[in-house]
């Protein structure tokens, strides 16, 4: 599938809750995963990046060159972050923002609830790089890009904070 790239305003659109995981949704998830794998080293993808405004993201940080804590390959339907803890700064890029990376502050640890593609509900605790990836992808569902959370390359972690755009 084709990936929307900013300044396409569709990336700012808010995604809807998935009410039923039917064949169509499953077929879409398969295609979304193919698209993620085709992207250069993408550890995640969100449905709105391919012009589908449903609350579906895929995150998989289990194949990093340097291994990080992870929960394997996750298909997250209607994901919701319920707890945040700590913060750290990291560098992010995005399939929807080619040729640019920037520093973003994210929660270090999160609790997230989601439904998988078989309809099972999960609640996991994630930290570090995986937590960052989950937050990055869930932002897409709210019409937010990492560009909305950029901090200066020269700024220290606690000098500034970014807040969600109102």
């Amino acid at each position: 599938m084709e990936i929307l790239t900013y300044p396409d305003q569709r990336l700012k659109q808010i995604s809807e809750t998935v009410t039923e995981i039917d064949k169509q949704i499953l077929a879409f998830i398969h295609e979304l995963e193919q698209t993620r794998q085709a992207g250069p080293g993408a550890v995640g993808i969100a449905a709105p990046q391919v012009d589908v405004f449903k609350q579906i993201v895929i995150v998989d940080v289990s194949k990093m060159k340097k291994p990080v804590d992870n929960h394997g390959h996750m298909i997250m339907i209607n994901p919701e972050i319920t707890e945040w803890d700590g913060m750290n700064m990291g560098r992010e890029g995005c399939l929807s923002v080619p040729d640019f990376t920037g520093n973003v502050i994210r929660a270090e640890k999160i609790k997230v609830k989601y439904t998988d593609e078989t309809g099972n509900k999960h609640e996991i605790e994630s930290s570090g790089f995986e937590a960052r990836a989950i937050q990055h992808e869930i932002d897409h569902l709210d019409g937010l890009l990492f560009l909305d959370r950029l901090v200066s390359r020269r700024s220290d972690l606690f000098k500034r904070k970014t807040y969600k755009k109102q």
């Binding site: 250069p40 550890v43 995640g44 990093m64 340097k66 560098r91 992010e92 399939l95």
Partner: peptide, 8 residues
């Protein structure tokens, strides 16, 4: 510190 750029 390693900078581990996230791409998503």
């Amino acid at each position: 510190d390693e900078i581990n750029t996230l791409r998503g």
